[in-house]
């Protein structure tokens, strides 16, 4: 358990160095970037002192890292607002989108993966696998655009864009999220179906699956009862690995549906070259991915009693 924590910390450190080098060292003189061409030497020096970029890179890096550890993500280069203040209200949007998308993807992929595995020699299995293959090729943002057209514009059933915080109006919140979550979840489900299928195929070949059927479970119920538990180990791994893809998908989907989330903020700040904010958001997203994958590692122990025994001994 301690070793896993160490790996997590090391990964985080490595990621933070990479992000820092890209955003702080590569662009050159930040003060010049901010002030533009007309700035005098004195103005530049003053700006550097204000930003702290006149110090050695190592000091700047440590300052940034320890700041984040205490919740201080730095300040926007242009607006001067604390990055945490900018991020705070937008995190809810992105979290709703990512969690919703992932849940929907699982909700679709588990039964479809079961069909693809159990009926692999018949047309339902063939159809499911084919649909998954095609679904994988569809860009999520195109799916989003088509959904907006069909349900938002033509039928008018759901709002085509925008966001309402859950605290203000839960029903409106849900209605605004249906289309973006669907676009994200359905495309992600297509990717997951293949993994679920092969994980289930493995279970179908196991002796204990046959034992479960021999005591009177049907194929489907044996898979639901014993298959899911035994496939969970590989599925949890896959979900952990797919999380990064879902987060990235959410960034694009936020743009499609004009959702005021972290992704929109990130893209706005990129076009303004406000790297202080960009850095903070990217670090936060990477932190989320690494943390979830560390949790995935820990969850193995909860899923598999054999590992549990090894852990405690």
């Amino acid at each position: 358990m301690l070793a896993r924590l160490g790996i997590f910390a090391l990964s985080l450190a490595l990621a933070s160095v990479v992000i820092f080098v890209i955003t702080q060292a590569l662009p050159g003189d930040v003060a010049a970037v901010i002030l533009g061409h007309g700035a005098t030497a004195e103005q530049l020096a003053a700006k550097r002192a204000e930003l702290g970029t006149d110090r050695p890179f190592v000091v700047q890096y440590l300052d940034w890292v320890f700041g984040m550890a205490t919740g201080d993500f730095g300040r926007s280069w242009f607006s001067g607002l604390p990055v945490a203040t900018l991020i705070g209200p937008r995190a809810e949007v992105t979290i709703s989108l990512v969690v919703g998308g992932l849940l929907l993807a699982l909700l679709i992929a588990l039964p479809l993966g079961a069909v693809a595995a159990l009926k692999r020699r018949q047309w339902p299995g063939f159809l499911t696998s084919t649909a998954a293959q095609v679904g994988m090729a569809v860009p999520a943002f195109w799916a989003g655009i088509l959904l907006v057209f069909v349900f938002g514009v033509t039928l008018g059933w759901l709002p085509p864009n925008g966001y309402v915080p859950i605290g203000r109006d839960p029903v409106a919140w849900a209605r605004h999220l249906v289309l973006p979550v669907t676009a994200l979840g359905v495309v992600q489900a297509a990717v997951l179906v293949r993994y679920v299928r092969s994980a289930f195929l493995e279970v179908l070949g196991e002796d204990h699956y046959r034992t479960a059927r021999s005591i009177g479970w049907t194929r489907w119920r044996a898979l639901a009862r014993h298959g899911v538990r035994n496939a969970a180990l590989s599925l949890v791994t896959v979900v952990g690995l797919q999380l990064a893809a879902v987060i990235v998908g959410a960034i694009v989907i936020e743009r499609v549906f004009v959702l005021p989330g972290l992704g929109s903020l990130l893209l706005d700040m990129v076009s303004q070259h406000d790297l202080a904010v960009v850095r903070g958001i990217v670090m936060l997203l990477v932190l989320a991915v690494l943390a979830i994958n560390a949790l995935v590692d820990v969850s193995y122990v909860l899923i598999d009693p054999r590992l549990r025994a090894r852990e405690s001994s």
Binding site: S11, A15, V18, I19, I22, T23, L26, P27, A244, A245, I247, V248, I251, V252, L266, L267, M269, V270, H273, L275, V278, V282, L285, V286, V289, L290, N293
Partner: peptide, 14 residues
Amino acid sequence: AFPALLLAILLAGV
């Protein structure tokens, strides 16, 4: 943890 798109966005910012 750095998918292509995230890295591209980061580099585009720089």
